[in-house]
Design a protein around this nucleic acid. Sequence first.
RNA 1: GGAGAGGUGGCAGAGUGGUAAUGCAGCAGCCUGCUAAGCUGUCAUCCUUCGGGAUGCCCGGGUUCGAAUCCCGGUCUCUCCGCCA
Length: 424
Amino acid sequence: MLQVQFIRDNKDVVLEGLAKRNFANAEAIINDVLKFDETRRSTQVSLDNVLADSNKLSKEIGMLFKSGEVQKANLLKEKTSQLKESGKELTEQLNDVTTKLQDLLYQIPNVPHASVVAGTSEEDNEEVFKEGTIPNLGEKALPHWELAKKYDIIDFDLGAKISGAGFPVYKGKGARLQRALINYFLDKNTSAGYNEVQVPHLVNEASGFGTGQLPDKEGQMYHVTADDLYLIPTAEVPITNLYRGSLVKEADLPITLTGYTPCFRREAGSYGAHVRGLNRLHQFDKVEIVRVEKPENSYEALNGMVEHIKGILRELKLPYRILRLCGGDTGFTAALTFDFELYSTAQERWLEISSASNFETFQANRLKLRYKNSEDKNQLAHTLNGSSLALPRVLAAILENYQTPEGIKIPEVLVPYCGFEIIN
RNA sequence: GGAGAGGUGGCAGAGUGGUAAUGCAGCAGCCUGCUAAGCUGUCAUCCUUCGGGAUGCCCGGGUUCGAAUCCCGGUCUCUCCGCCA
């Protein structure tokens, strides 16, 4: 959520930014925000004055009662009724305009970083980095869902039986490889200084709101209605919300966290070939990194996260590229996002496996996550997160790119974690 | 699931109807050469014509001229009992 003050002071910047996202009716909405904000403030001034008068009267009445001048006190009491009424009216007006203002603010996405280009879809994303060699697998290369069947390591039908489509069952070496990846990722992250946490997989509404999933993206999350809890779509939600409502010390920044969780997504509306196999699931595993930073350091931190993720992909020896998302493809809450994509040789397409974003103060404003700055003022922190990494598509790419006539070779760095060198 | 207690500033902790003590920590200034102390201010949010004003004691209602305090509903934490990995 943008701060009203920021919109008030930087209307042009906001409008330019929203234009890059192709955000409809930006000008009208921003003008409404400014209008409601002005009404809100002037209403508050009027209300404050009424309340001040009535506080004064109350004090006088109290004094009069104390000194036994009951009649005078009762006379004053009558005067308060009028103030009460106008106070009530103004309070209603204030609540009304505040709600309207909030509702609008919830609808406005983050202002993209200066480096983000305008664009409407993934077509406009900019490739900023590419590395690794795409193996030549020949004609007989199989997509991972066929490999999974051939070696009996992932069973989609069994998952469909017990839950539904999009809930795979990992078996044998498949399960072990999955666990190896989780441990490998966590080890990489903790050795880079991220503190490991294990967090709940169900969160309350306030947490969903804090990181921006609610109220808008409600349909993307599984909702346990009996207890009003949401299954997390990403560890970003519980981990970032650890600091909801916190006032942290400047010396404690940056806060760097990592955690493994399953992620649950309803993926309402998805269909077709592109969701085959592991490409899009309702439940998948992911290791996440989260940072809370001072504003002046947040972009350097984002670069650091990108470099960190690069290091992991290099070790896995998978061909990948990095995209800087265009305005239209950048998530609602992010100011700048880099997507990492692996090349799946058998599917002949790029698969998104990580997304690293700087949210600047957008989440912090909702979370009320502040720190005391050097001037001893409370200031909103910047939040960032990135996947390191999302498991299924990494697994898919490993299966596909490492397939040989003898079986699927395990990337060298994973062998100690797996305890075997080949799936055959 | 049952019973009880509780939720007050960054932290600790008073306050049972008259408008949020006090301590610690932090910040600014003053002062003092004795390893740091003392004094003053500041130290939640919003508004402001920069004089101030309003709000704020878990959340939402209510009673009252006036609510941290009384009433109703919710929520969370703790203790005990029950059940249980």
